[in-house]
Design a protein around this nucleic acid. Structure first.
Ligand SMILES: [Mn+2]
Ligand SMILES: [Mn+2]
Ligand SMILES: [Zn+2]
Ligand SMILES: [Zn+2]
Lengths: 142, 142
DNA sequence: ATCTCAATGGAAACCATTTTTATTTAACCT
DNA sequence: AGGTTAAATAAAAATGGTTTCCATTGAGAT
């Protein structure tokens, strides 16, 4: 069953625009995490006019809404990934081929209980080389 | 007992320079995480000439050597923190007053076992408002 | 159809971070 | 102490991902 992107956008109180639908479609069909620049390039194949700020804005909004997740790359660039797994979890990301593996959330709730104050957000991410890249001798790339 | 910063630098095969010693001194006396810019400002009180790229380079090297830790702020700026706790752990950072609390590492080793490939690095960090800031009604700041 | 405010494009600004190159300095060896 | 060498540094500039600004367009409601 395909995702109902329009319904997702409505739930987030975001207008259902062609660019947002195309952005979700692009992310959900990508097999890896992608950069805003790459999303922009892909949308240029669908729209005569598409601004990079629009891509940045929409990706940020979708991430804020929990529809897509951010990948914090060691190169300090921000990437995005559409993960169909709706339960709370985190990711192992390959620095060579950009594939993503789900990590079952360990005791992060326990961690939050240790905190004296209020936790607003948290990051858990493992970076490395996936099995395929390890075997192929590929290296982490910028 | 004061830290032996010269010995720390030697262990990392870094030359013992006045700027590196001052950087470590500045970080270890700070009660919060600090930005490279702020370190630079503070060193300007000690050195007639001190370049910002030098601060960036040295902070990065010290972090790579595990002497200081990075704080990944939601504002996408990078901050650094000197934590005297030498065991493997992670941090809860206050977005208002920039204080840091240690988090005992939960099952991160378990997480790594889930991964098919090789884990090169990992991030675990909780962001929020510390108890003091919560009570004082302070807000997360940029 | 009209209205209203969110969404968008394009250009420009922003600004943390990095690169470049010449110069200085710490470390090491007589 | 003096000489050698590679690392460290300053200064300036470039880089480039990201954000801001503002005029225009478009989605959704009536
Ligand atoms: Mn996932
Ligand atoms: Mn700590
Ligand atoms: Zn891979
Ligand atoms: Zn606080």
């Amino acid at each position: 069953m395909p995702h109902d992107f329009a319904a997702i956008l409505k739930e987030l109180h975001l207008k259902v625009t062609p660019r947002r639908l195309a952005t979700l479609a692009a992310l959900s069909t990508a097999t890896t995490y992608v950069s805003p620049e790459e999303v922009h390039k892909r949308l240029q194949g669908e729209f005569a006019r598409i601004g990079l700020p629009t891509v940045y804005r929409n990706l940020e909004e979708l991430a804020a809404g929990g529809v897509i997740t951010k990948v914090l790359h060691p190169n300090r660039q921000l990437y995005y990934y559409f993960c169909p797994n709706r339960s709370h979890h985190h990711h192992f990301v390959c620095l060579a081929c950009r594939t993503v593996e789900d990590l079952e959330c360990c005791g992060l709730e326990d961690l939050e209980k240790q905190v004296g104050g209020r936790v607003i957000s948290h990051i858990v991410q493992a970076n490395g080389l996936c099995q395929a890249c390890l075997r192929a001798g590929r290296e982490a790339s910028a």
